[in-house]
Design a protein around this nucleic acid. Structure first.
Lengths: 220, 220
DNA sequence: CTTGACATAGAACAAATGTGCGATTATAAT
DNA sequence: ATTATAATCGCACATTTGTTCTATGTCAAG
């Protein structure tokens, strides 16, 4: 909240709060009479008087003679978007292939993919997307062409799936559930497919590039 | 089952587009007269007529006798997204489990899931969604909890993945690539995992409930 | 104590806005 | 060809909404 609202008289503050709440709830500004009712101000001329004061402070602007002609200025604008249907542009960094390093840096002119925010967890703005090339991720129940969404993380909790680069043997990218067992210097990498066996790799040879948060497979 | 905006008459579409743009630009809904001016409709009663039609379709709602008493319903809320990133509400019909019939009919009060239109192919308004319960779809590279989007179809082209109900042995639901081999009365059902073997089933025992068009796996 | 600025309030009025009626035309069904 | 329904339109009217006028109260400065 900016300095503009600092030391706002009680009644003006009530008017402003009412307008903000009304905007959120109704998707439109209130009328002068609605403000009077909601902020307990007995006359329309007094509401007008307060709106004029708030306009002078730059908190809102008015269009004379227009119904509901009140507009909150930033940062008082209230977004009309229902939050759960917003999508997010996630940078698409390239392809994940078993034999090549996993891309983690965006380049100029990076493509993006749109994903519904409702399907994502916290810090969605840090996510990036990779597309799977080849059948090497089959043991993760991930197919050639699948889109995976990741959060850049160098560690994950036991049992979480990550994009992992294994240094030994010339380097290999894989998607697996990662476990650091107590008392062991190895990392256990477990395929998502419960019918397949885990592998054990020295912890020093393993680089976690990101945690997998979503997999999208389009078949058309 | 159709998406709400399918086959909207040209003038209603103009009205809707005008309202959306006006909301974005002004932060409030337009008046009936502003809609008339902006969408080139000559009378207020005709604008009212179109608003009534749009309300009947569930695209918007109105408050009688209130100035600017128009509210766009989801998924027609004003969005900053370019048009090809619009989302579509797809009816979520329930769960697909190996041992139970595949749901294909929507019930009253059906939930929906939002999916980006850009990720879908043709006729997106016919699609429905199911969630996978259990590990029985692992051979399709589909995990417990995955969301699958399907188009209701009773036949698919060779090699396309479908939700299939097999009548024999008391009934079984499965997700497999379907092949009708020439000169054979059997259907060949091929797992998506290329390391696993196909099964052959008499064609009469197989009911295709829908073609799989997308699989979404959320890991958080 | 006086004065001026600001705050408060009711009510009337003008303008904006939504609704409904009646009429005409277009389209689809029989 | 007839009939029913949908689409189109102008206009009058009712209601909502914003503005203005006038009056009164409060508070700070001189």
């Amino acid at each position: 909240m900016t300095a503009k609202a600092a030391k706002l008289p009680k009644r003006q503050k009530r008017v402003l709060t009412f307008i903000q709440n009304y905007m959120q709830q109704h998707g439109r500004p209130p009328t002068v009479r609605e403000i009077g009712e909601g902020a307990e101000i007995s006359s329309t001329s007094l509401v007008s008087y307060y709106l004029k004061r708030l306009e002078e402070r730059g908190i809102l602007s008015r269009e004379p003679g227009v119904s509901r002609g009140i507009r909150l200025e930033q940062p008082f604008d209230v977004t009309m978007l229902p939050e759960d249907n917003e999508t997010l542009s996630i940078p698409f960094l390239g392809y994940i292939v078993a034999s090549e390093p996993i891309p983690v840096e965006p380049l100029p002119g990076t493509e993006t993919v749109e994903v519904n925010r409702a399907l994502l967890g916290r810090d969605p703005e840090k996510l990036f997307a990779l597309k799977v090339e080849g059948n090497s991720m089959i043991d993760a129940l991930v197919n050639d062409g699948d889109l995976i969404i990741l959060r850049p993380q160098e560690t994950v909790n036991n049992g979480e799936m990550a994009a992992v680069w294994i240094d030994s043997s010339g380097g290999e990218a894989t998607l697996k559930k990662v476990y650091r067992d107590e008392g062991s210097s190895n990392v256990r990498l477990v395929p998502a497919n419960p019918t397949m066996k885990p592998i054990h790799v020295p912890a020093d040879d393993v680089q976690i590039k990101g945690k997998v948060v979503m997999i999208i497979r389009t078949l058309e």
